[in-house]
Structures are given as structure tokens and as C-alpha cells.
Design a protein around this nucleic acid. Structure first.
Lengths: 190, 190
DNA sequence: GATCGCAATTTGTGATCACATACGCAAATG
DNA sequence: CATTTGCGTATGTGATCACAAATTGCGATC
């Protein structure tokens, strides 16, 4: 999810088991779960690897993020108090740090934490769970995306999200979230 | 997914293995996958059962169906030719048969086939896959829903969906799909 | 008659094994 | 030098086992 593994990276059950000090059995169960969630790709011969997403697939996942996260933000809006907004601003500071340090994993991780913190307020665990499986599927690709970004400042749309939350502006919030989750991925589908 | 198992039904690895003539290992992997997809509930002690959904959870899953399936239908619309519409009408006949026979599983199965047939035209496998995991989560609950329905004719909204497809009427299609997937579930969340 | 406690049994977990298959590398061939 | 063939090895699969934990059912007790 955090882009620690590159797209197309192959994994073996024995390798995973050795890495975490367990036998093949728990490694198999973990791998099967991640395959079911779309986070790993299972070849016809049973080999597993992180997925290499096609442009079409990235477009779909971007559309899914937009659909799901706009809904989550909209549900969170009426419950977003000042304490939450302050927390979001703090996390946004962490995002900025990762940007200046050019820390891809740290950037992805704190960026997702920003979103998750907001969406937790939506009190919609089923929707959030599905949004997180989408993040999982995009993880390796997001790392590749970061390499193409030549950014030096934290994401502009995060500020728009916070402003819309403060103002209680639902249309503005929906637009800001849609733009934020769509913007980056657009770089990858051309 | 088709409501063959009632909500809250307990399952054991050895029982599943015996039922399908395999050892515990494949049963474990299948169960773990279904748990990951939300189709089965895993208790803290490791026992698995079909989920008993709360009203809040049903409301969320209904909202998810609306979000995802409206998008899928919208994407399918420009590709929906006459052959597809005729196929949908045929399936709708199967739905009607299941209704008169009071066959819950047959009704759920053919109803979902109606939707899947339409959505396959959307050429959006990632979105469809997620919609299907939502169906999976609702399976046992849909069976309970069917018991509360005193219906004697096929779903009205399917006809509206077909009419909107014929007319190329996207707003009408979106409304018809949203109504169709929401209507039934509403009975359960009160 | 209801509740509590204990024991027998069921159940999930992690490990290991045998086996079939697929992969990768190197040698051979054109 | 490129392509193919063949072999050794790595890898996934399904089965089985030992063990710990939890559930169940029965009997005792109040």
C-alpha cells in the first residue's frame, strides 16, 4: 500500500516465510488474502507478484477512488469538528516533510493517513475498507508515480479540502477530494 | 452470493474439507479469501461464519451498490447494442419465473445475472470485481430479504433500465439503476 | 429448575513432507 | 551469434500431524 514494493516484483512463499520467521503456511494465507484483495497478482502457474497495472486499470482505480472518497468525505463533513481539522493540518505538515526529503514511501504513507483520518469520521467502515483495497492495488504504482513527480511543495488540494471542511462547503469538498485523488494518477495514464 | 447460506451460519475447516472431498488446507485458503472479501466473518477465536449484517452495514452496502452500479451502467450505455438488450430481456424472463416459483436462490441468481450482463459491457473489470464483492457480502442477507418480499411480478425497475438503454437516456438509466439496487435493501434497514 | 464447573471433544494454527510442475540457466545446434 | 533443447532446481499444492485454545455437553450443586 505504501509503495515499498515495485510493480512486477516476484514473491515466493518460502521467501516470505523466511523473511518473517514462519513456515510456508502463514505465508500462503497472507498471500491468498492479498491476491483476493487485488494487491498481488497470481499467475496461472501459481506464482505471485505485485501487479503491473495497465493504463486502463489505473483509470478505473482512479475513478473508484473518486467515487468512494468523495462519498466518504461527504459523509465525514457534518461530523468534522475543529480537532479533526487541526489533526489534518498536522498530518499535512508530515506530508510536506516527506516531500522535501524526497521520501516516496513517507509521502505515500502520510498522504494516505491524511485521507484515512478524514474518512474515519464518516463512520462508514465498509466503504472505507473498500477504499483501502483500492489503495492497496495502487501501492506499487504510486511509487512509480512519485518518481515522475517533480514536486517541492505539499499537495495544493489538501489545503482546498481543509478550507472546504472549515467552511462546511460540501460541493467544494467533493470537488477538492475528486481533484486530489485524480490529479496524480492522471500523470500515469498517457 | 446467491443466498444459499443463511446469515450467521457457522462453518468449520474440516467440515468444508469433507464436503468437497479435500483436506483442511484448500478449505483454509478458500475461507481466508472469502474473509478477505468480507463474505465471511472471522471471530476473534478463529471461527468463521456468514455475517449477520447490522442496519448500518446494510445501508452502507446499499450506498456502495448505488455508487458502483450507476457508474458501471453509465459506462455500459454507449456500448449497449440491441443484442445486449435482448439478452437482458431474456434474463428478465428468468427472473419472472423465479418469482412465480417463489425460488429465492433462483431469483437472486438471475437478478444478479441481469446486472452482471449489463455491467460486463462497461469494460471495467476492476469496478465490476468490487461490485461483486459487495454482492458477496450481501448474499446471506438477500435471502432474508426475499422472505420479506411478497412480490408476484418481476422487478419494475428492470423494465425502466431496459427502456433507458433503448432510448440512450443516461440520466434515466442512472436513476433506474440506483432505484433498483436501493429499493429492496430499504426494506431491511428499518 | 437454573446455574455453575469440569472434562471430553471439536477446532484453528503452524510446521513439515511428498510430489508434480514450472522456471531458469547452460549447453548444444543451426 | 541467436535459438532451441534439456536438465537441475526452485516453487506451489494438498495432505497430515502435534498442539493449544475454545466450545460443548453433562452432571453436580444450590
Amino acid at each position: 500500500m505504501h509503495g515499498e514494493v515495485a510493480p512486477g516484483q516476484a514473491l515466493t512463499l518460502r521467501g516470505i516465510g523466511k523473511e518473517f520467521g514462519v513456515s510456508m503456511t502463514p505465508a500462503r494465507e497472507a498471500v491468498r488474502r492479498l491476491v483476493a484483495e487485488g494487491a498481488l497478482f497470481l499467475s496461472s502457474s501459481g506464482r505471485v507478484s505485485t501487479p503491473e497495472l495497465t493504463h486502463d486499470r489505473i483509470e478505473e482505480l482512479a475513478a473508484l477512488r473518486a467515487l468512494l472518497e468523495v462519498e466518504l468525505a461527504s459523509r465525514a463533513l457534518p461530523r468534522a469538528h475543529m480537532a479533526l481539522i487541526e489533526r489534518l493540518q498536522t498530518i499535512n505538515g508530515t506530508v510536506a516533510e516527506a516531500v522535501v526529503k524526497r521520501d516516496a514511501v513517507g509521502y505515500i504513507r502520510s498522504n494516505l493517513e491524511f485521507h484515512r483520518t478524514l474518512y474515519l469520521r464518516a463512520q462508514a467502515p465498509a466503504i472505507l475498507a473498500i477504499a483501502e483495497t483500492v489503495w492497496l492495488q495502487l501501492g506499487p504504482t504510486m511509487r512509480a508515480l512519485y518518481g515522475k513527480l517533480r514536486r517541492t511543495e505539499p499537495p495544493h488540494y489538501h489545503k482546498l479540502i481543509i478550507a472546504a471542511l472549515k467552511a462546511g462547503d460540501e460541493p467544494g469538498l467533493r470537488l477538492a477530494v475528486r481533484s486530489d485523488v485524480t490529479q496524480g494518477l492522471k500523470l500515469l495514464i498517457r
